[in-house]
């Protein structure tokens, strides 16, 4: 297994192709849940968890079931159903057996079904032709990138709350402008992979 390729995928997913700030996936929770640090980390950990589970479930199904039988066009329907069922299953299992984790993540789980970052990462893994190991690493990296963006932005948000923007910019508009500045700062990571790994 090419370990170097995995590290490149991981770094790329976290820093360079950050899902929220570069690819606009998962904007709803990014704008909505980032108001305080506790909720932001809770939501992000739930997202990482579901992304890994969803990739582990969808990749084999795509390659061993859909592609072998020429049913590739059912991808969208099958994936969203798997994610919905998986989220429900995880919620039930956590509620019954791992009460501590359920108390921490339970509120966020139902919302993750309609989080486009989760469906996005599963479809992107297939589209890029990753192997199973590469897909799992990409899912982990995308999740960590989401966590990073959420944690940084929750810090920014706490300052916005106490600032005094022009009347019509209050609320969502000023939040979006701050997100733009954060997104701009992530441009600094462009080329970091090429410099570190020389590829």
């Amino acid at each position: 297994m090419d370990f170097r390729a995995l590290v490149i995928i991981l770094m790329g997913a976290v820093l360079v192709n950050n899902y929220v700030l570069r690819q606009f996936l998962g904007i709803c929770p990014f704008l909505g849940v980032s108001k305080d640090l506790k909720n932001a980390t809770g939501m992000s950990i739930a997202v990482i968890f579901v992304m890994l589970m969803a990739t582990a479930a969808t990749w084999p199904i795509q390659f061993y079931l859909l592609d072998r039988n020429g049913l590739g066009y059912l991808q969208t329907i099958v994936f969203i159903l798997i994610i919905a069922a998986l989220v429900q299953l995880v919620e039930t299992v956590l509620k019954k057996y791992i009460r501590v984790l359920y108390n921490a993540l339970g509120v966020y789980l139902p919302l993750i079904t309609t989080n486009c970052a989760v469906l996005g990462v599963t479809i992107a893994n297939i589209g890029k032709g990753y192997t199973f190991a590469q897909s799992m690493v990409n899912a982990l990296g995308s999740g960590l990138g989401f966590l990073l963006a959420m944690v940084i932005f929750s810090g920014v948000r706490s300052h916005i709350e106490s600032s005094d923007p022009p009347e019509s910019f209050k609320g969502l508009p000023i939040t979006l402008i701050s997100a733009a500045i954060l997104s701009l700062s992530f441009f600094g990571f462009g080329g970091v992979i090429e410099n570190l790994f020389g590829s």
């Binding site: 009347e167 019509s168 969502l172 508009p173 402008i177 997104s183 441009f187």
Partner: peptide, 28 residues
Amino acid sequence: VLTMAPGGFVVFGCLIALVSKISKGRVR
């Protein structure tokens, strides 16, 4: 930069602010 990611956030933020300004805060 407008065609890249930050430009999207800025233009979207300004458009919402504009709509909110025109409708005098009713929209928000």
